[in-house]
């Protein structure tokens, strides 16, 4: 089983890296871009014996305690078999 954790900056937090990337992409000629924000992505492989709801709870706890900084970041968890 795999838990996927997406960590993104809170909407209220400025993302200078995302802005720089957006600028570069636009320099290449890509149009119609409203915003680019950079985040982090984690893949957590879990033992087959772990139940899906436990996997989600564990991944959420890990995301809250370690993978994200709640002062500036939000996270989202997906679990797949």
């Amino acid at each position: 089983m795999r838990a996927k954790v997406y960590v993104t900056l809170k909407p209220s937090v400025l993302d200078p890296q995302g802005k720089a990337i957006q600028h570069s992409v636009e320099q290449l000629g890509y149009g119609g871009i409203e915003d680019i924000r950079q985040g982090k992505y984690f893949e957590i492989e879990l033992d087959e014996s772990v139940k899906e709801e436990d996997a989600r709870a564990t991944a959420e706890r890990m995301a809250r305690e370690v993978l994200s900084n709640p002062v500036i970041e939000d996270f989202r968890v997906e679990v797949e078999r």
Binding site: V13, L14, P16, Q17, A20, N69, V71, I72
Partner: peptide, 17 residues
């Protein structure tokens, strides 16, 4: 100290990168 919660807030990437 901020990450540990001993001080409030966070230190992010510099404005100018």
């Amino acid at each position: 100290l901020c990450e540990a919660g001993l001080l409030p807030g966070a230190l992010m990437r510099n404005r100018g990168l």
